[in-house]
Design a binder for these strands. Sequence first.
DNA 1: AAAGCTCACGCACGTAGAGA
DNA 2: TCTCTACGTGCGTGAGCTTT
Length: 291
Amino acid sequence: MPSFADYGKNNPSQWITAFEGTRYPDYLTVARKMYEAPLAEFGVLLNTATDSADLLRRIVREPLPGRIQLMRIFRRYVSQKTPVEMLKKISKVEEVVTNYGADFRSLAEVRLAYASRPHPDEALMAVMYEHADRGSKGYELTARFFKWFEETYGARYQIDGPVRAGKDVMLHERLPHFRSFFSSNIPADIYITRTDGTPLVAGFARYDSDRGGAQEDDRTGQNHDKATTLQNYAARAGIPLKVLFLNDGPGLTLGSMWRDYAALEAEGNGRTLVCTLKMLSERLTSQWLES
DNA sequence: AAAGCTCACGCACGTAGAGA
DNA sequence: TCTCTACGTGCGTGAGCTTT
């Protein structure tokens, strides 16, 4: 079977699946649907509030999910330095006012700023939309993997893990006697067993849109550690467990990523597999699963 | 039961510096 | 000058636990 390194020798981008979002300016239509109402609501609250701390208190009383968007607007108009996580905590409102209130822009200024904008404010909606699909590409990757696996091997093997959002599979809770060898906790995205429960594959999924090298450098070491630990475990416990790295996205072709993953796979001596979605049918074979 | 809240996930984007 | 490594900040969503 060709190695992951071999796939990289000739136009690696043909093995990549690129998940595209909506492009500019098309997404302005979508953004408008999402943010027009909260932006107008912000204007209403702006008129009724007595000062900018009061504005925040009023926002906090709004129901979800609109409240989150109002807070995002508040953050941009009034207080850039208040972390979103703090704004989300309703019980911490007074704390936020105490800690950050001195730097809130005054209500008069915010009103002027708000009034100076066209309504609806497409610029702000576009800025807000930039973050709307955070994380979704990673979820898309695992979702497609699970679908493929169920269709291909669903009758013969058991697969577990969060299909999109959700908790990872904690390997130390699943792998027999893992704790007697290692103290580390290893969360996995994919866990495949025979129907009798014999562990076959621990898998880790990751999608890289961009900045392959820059984002990956810290993880290369972590991936290496996970693979080594799991291979050691499998050998000691006498279990046919293997390691899968499901990686995809254009970022994979940037920098040293491909080489790093090729090296990771090579170190596994056949017991570590690095795959993109497009490689699955020829690489994630039943022969490998049972090896 | 509903609302509040925390946590896991991991993408987007910026600068600095070394080396080719 | 360009590429790559290294480091860092910003951010929203959904699951599911906790509190009311």
